[in-house]
Design a protein around this nucleic acid. Structure first.
Lengths: 127, 127
DNA sequence: TTAGGATAAGCTTATTAAAGCATACCGGTA
DNA sequence: TACCGGTATGCTTTAATAAGCTTATCCTAA
C-alpha cells in the first residue's frame, strides 16, 4: 500500500520506493526577464569547446538561427558581451566565450547546485 | 558603474539597484514525470471555488478540453483522485476537489515557499 | 584577387501545440 | 419524459513556434 501526497512535509509512508520527487528549473533574470538558463549555458559551453556558433549549434541539434539569436540577446543585455565573434579571417571566423561569459556559466551552476540541494531535501521529506 | 555577473556568489557591486535575480519553477514529479505544478494547482483552486471544470477553465481562460485532460491525468496518476466529478443531476453535474486534492495544493505551496526563500537569498548574493 | 568558412539576417516553409467545434452522455428535477 | 448544464471525447481548424533556405558580408591567407 502506497501513501498519497502529504501536506505535513513529514514522512508518513512505510514503502521504501520513493514515488514523488521535487523538480525545478532555475535561471537568472535580468531587468527585462529571463536572461540565462541551462539551455544558454549549454550553448555557451559548446561555443567554448568548438570555437564557433555554427558548430556549437550543430552539436546540440539547435538551428544556427536560434543559437545566433540567443548569443545576440545575451550580448545585448549584458554589460559586457558573453560571446565575442570573429568575422572573416582564418577559417572564415568564429566565436569565443569571454571571461564574463565564463563567469556567467560558473555562477549559473552555483545557483543550480544550491537549488538541487534543497530540492533533494524536499524530495526526501515528501516521501 | 555597474558590475557584471560574478562567479563568487558574493557582493561585488556598489550600485543600489539590483540588476539580476534568480528565477525558478518548481513542481512535483510522480514516477512518470511532471505531475503537479503551479498551473494545475491554480486549476484545482478554481475548481474548488467554482464547483465545475467548465467554470474553472473559463475563469482562467483555459480551454475546457485542456482543463479536463489535466484533471484526468492527475486522477489517473494519483493513488486517490484529486478531483471528483458528478455527471448529470442537478445543474447538469459538476466537479469538486477531494481531500487528497486539497492536501496536494498545500504541499505544493510549502515546497514553493521553501524554494522562494532560497531564490531570494541567492538573488541577494549575486547583486 | 580569389577562395574559404563563419557570422548576419530576412523571408518562406514545416512542424507542433493549442484552440475551437460538434455531439453524445449523464441524471436529477419540473 | 423532456430539459438543463456539465462531463466526455473525437475531429477539424487555427495559432504559435521552430526550422530551413537564401544571400550578403566579413577578413585572412594563399
Amino acid at each position: 500500500m502506497r501513501c498519497v501526497l502529504v501536506s505535513t512535509l513529514k514522512l508518513n509512508m512505510k514503502s521504501a520506493a520513493k514515488k514523488y520527487s521535487v523538480g525545478f528549473r532555475v535561471w537568472i533574470n535580468e531587468e527585462q526577464g529571463h536572461f540565462i538558463g541551462i539551455g544558454r549555458v549549454r550553448l555557451l559551453e559548446n561555443i567554448q569547446h568548438t570555437g564557433s556558433i555554427t558548430r556549437a549549434a550543430k552539436e546540440m541539434k539547435m538551428s544556427y538561427r536560434q543559437a545566433w539569436q540567443m548569443v545576440e540577446d545575451m550580448n545585448n543585455r549584458s554589460d559586457k558581451p558573453l560571446v565575442e565573434k570573429i568575422l572573416g579571417g582564418k577559417g572564415g571566423g568564429g566565436a569565443m566565450v569571454t571571461e564574463a561569459g565564463g563567469k556567467a556559466i560558473k555562477l549559473f551552476y552555483k545557483l543550480e547546485k544550491e537549488m538541487i540541494k534543497l530540492s533533494e531535501k524536499l524530495s526526501d521529506k515528501i516521501n
